[in-house]
Design a protein around this nucleic acid. Structure first.
Length: 286
DNA sequence: GTCCAGGCTCTTT
DNA sequence: AAAGAGCATGGA
């Protein structure tokens, strides 16, 4: 961890809140409140000091090539918040509460597998499965404080895995989904590079061809890996928010889409992230 | 023991 | 098109 890059005067960023917002499962908190993050084949140690973000483990080149976009520094969150503010009181409170949340731009392939694992699952278990998968099928990157860190497995590695070995990673019945989806990607049935440049509706339709990817998972993939800030994932928590605070009870995905677009606008996906974080930390005893 | 977790697939109306 | 059963697993 000799190399480091310091980002000065960072606004609208809280490592703790991002780590706890359920979009990445490879952030590890250390006792001193700093974080070890594995992504894009690299391992970084993140430290907040005052208004600065210190990224240990990379050089300037890697920051501008990879991590700048990972942290969504292209986006003006002041502008986003201004756009979302005063639409309703609950959202205002959520934005105030999770003011340091950002949407991380993560790798498409990794997010596909990650959110297939997330379905009908809980966060500690999702983290554990991804850790086991990476250790078994990924590549060793480096050791920090005596802990070994591994990259997320390549599509080829998972497509050649044995079902029973996948099952041993705690995937449950999702082992088949992972295997089938991996094969659809390695055999070219679905092309990831094309997906990234498709309009939201087309991309969503394409994503849902993958086994284990339905409406909610597809929206997560679009929001967290395809730079689609209007994608609005509806999970059990967001469903609760819509019912309890927006008096919205319809179940059809299309009617939800209409309501969400009308009410939250072009940044509905980012609004969703504030709402998710807010309800999980105010109505969930951890 | 039951219920739930960032739901999906498959089958039946 | 819409609704229901079944699904692995671990923690509360």
């Amino acid at each position: 961890m000799n190399e480091k890059f310091v980002v000065r005067d960072v606004e609208n960023l809280s490592l703790k809140q991002i780590a706890d917002s359920g979009q990445s499962f490879r952030w590890k908190e250390l006792p001193d409140g700093s974080f070890i993050v594995t992504a894009m084949g690299e391992v970084v140690h993140l430290v907040e000091t005052g208004d600065d973000l210190i990224i240990n483990g990379i050089n300037e080149n890697s920051f501008y090539e990879k991590w700048y976009n990972y942290f969504d520094f292209n986006r003006d969150y002041k502008k986003v918040k201004k756009n979302l503010k005063e639409r309703d009181k609950y959202l205002d409170a959520a934005i105030e509460y999770g003011s340091g949340i950002r949407i991380l731009n993560q790798e498409l392939w990794e997010i596909i597998i990650t959110f297939i694992i997330s379905s009908n699952n809980n966060i500690p278990r999702i983290k554990n499965s991804i850790e086991l998968l990476s250790r078994k099928y990924g590549k060793y990157i480096k050791s920090v404080n005596g802990e070994d860190y591994y990259s997320f497995p390549e599509p080829k590695a998972l497509s050649e895995a044995k079902l029973e070995d996948l099952r041993a990673c705690g995937l449950g019945y999702r082992d088949k989904y992972i295997l089938k989806t991996s094969r659809m990607i390695t055999d070219g049935t679905i092309d990831l590079e094309t997906l990234k440049v498709m309009p939201l509706k087309n991309a969503k339709k394409e994503l849902k061809k993958l086994v284990g990817v339905g409406n909610k998972v597809a929206d997560c993939i679009l929001l967290f890996a395809c730079e689609k800030p209007e994608a609005f994932p509806v999970d059990t928590w967001v469903k609760k928010v819509l019912e309890k605070y927006y008096d919205f009870h319809e179940k059809k995905p299309e009617s939800i889409n209409v309501f969400v677009k009308e009410h939250f606008g072009a940044y509905s996906g980012i609004a969703q992230q504030y709402l998710f974080y807010y309800i999980r930390h105010t109505e969930h005893l951890e």
